[in-house]
């Protein structure tokens, strides 16, 4: 028979989320009406956001540390280096130091670090807290207020903390929210529903379906991400948001960081572990990647652009 490209019709569209406004150059996520560019031109390439921390992060593996050791004392300089030297589309400011078991910095101190980064670079910001369910809401509220009008992504709302406060901060100061569920489509739907009840729209939400790293359950992430994207395109309003990956999780895998003669140098396999983790999730629908290693960031961004151009 004759050849006809297998193009499918999808009843619905993924919402487009804008990050960055005010003094930032905006970046757009999502907006797809199909899975692949051969079906329909893809509106936005996948983007990478560089991880920056408010403390010098003693635990970072050496292959990363050696690129940033000169700037780790200053989040502003760190962010500048990520943007200037390594071409970051965005920067993620992780307020790890606010963790009660880390340095227990106050929400005000967290907000100051955010202010410093906002001054240092003009790319949009993702703002993450420490992951403490009690402390995160006030920390993110203070950061949201400081960054009013800059349209940041607040990371993250989840079922274990008072997500109403996050939603309210996002609405009050015009930010978007990262909605994080642990590899569970139904939990993701519920959380998105609640956030939308609190006044957020699809255009204000990015989903984090959880990144299990290569070899550490990446197949769970693949399955959930595939189902989420297909669900969105097929018309489920609770899944029609772009997706994010905490690709940095890859560095928690032994094969990325552990020194072992018979596995070859970590300098090479570490970045590959991060690339494989991100790329695999990109091919299944993720739109924004939080990453650490300059080479991984560059390769993922370049290849991501060729998939959507």
């Amino acid at each position: 028979g004759d050849f006809k490209p297998p193009i499918k019709e999808y009843p619905s569209k993924i919402a487009q989320v804008q990050l960055g406004d005010g003094s930032r150059k905006p970046v757009f996520l999502g907006g797809q009406n199909s899975l692949y560019r051969f079906e329909e031109p893809q509106p936005n390439p996948p983007v990478v956001t560089f991880d920056v921390f408010d403390i010098p992060m003693p635990g970072l593996p050496r292959p990363i540390r050696e690129h940033f050791s000169d700037v780790m004392e200053s989040p502003g300089e760190w962010a500048k280096k990520a943007v200037k030297d390594y071409g970051a589309n965005l920067v993620t400011m992780h307020l790890i130091g606010t963790g009660p078991k880390v340095m227990d910095k106050s929400p005000r101190e967290g907000a100051q670090a955010v202010e410093e980064v906002l001054q240092a670079v003009d790319v949009p910001l993702v703002i993450g807290a420490s992951g403490d369910p009690i402390k995160d809401p006030p920390v993110l509220e203070a950061a949201a207020e400081t960054a009013e009008g800059e349209r940041c992504l607040l990371a993250s709302a989840n079922m274990d903390l008072d997500y109403h406060r996050l939603a309210k901060a996002a609405v009050d100061y015009d930010h978007a929210v990262l909605s994080w569920a642990i590899t569970d489509v139904n939990m993701q739907k519920s959380l998105n529903k609640y956030l939308m009840k609190d006044g957020l729209k699809q255009e204000d939400i990015v989903m984090d379906p959880t990144t299990c790293a290569l070899g550490y359950g990446i197949e769970f992430s693949i399955d959930v991400i595939t189902r989420t994207r297909l669900g969105g395109l097929k018309g489920d309003p609770d899944l029609q948001m772009p997706m994010s990956s905490g690709t940095t999780n890859a560095w928690g895998s032994r094969e990325a960081w552990m020194k072992k003669e018979e596995w070859g140098p970590t300098d090479y396999r570490g970045p590959l572990w991060e690339i494989f983790t991100g790329l695999t999730l990109m091919l299944n629908g993720v739109d924004i990647f939080m990453m650490l290693h300059p080479d991984s960031v560059r390769i993922l961004r370049e290849i991501g652009e060729t998939f959507t151009k």
């Binding site: 070899g215 596995w263 070859g264 140098p265 590959l272 494989f276």
Partner: peptide, 12 residues
Amino acid sequence: TDIWELIPILTL
């Protein structure tokens, strides 16, 4: 055939 290249490929 370098092992650092093949380990991620085999794991994936």
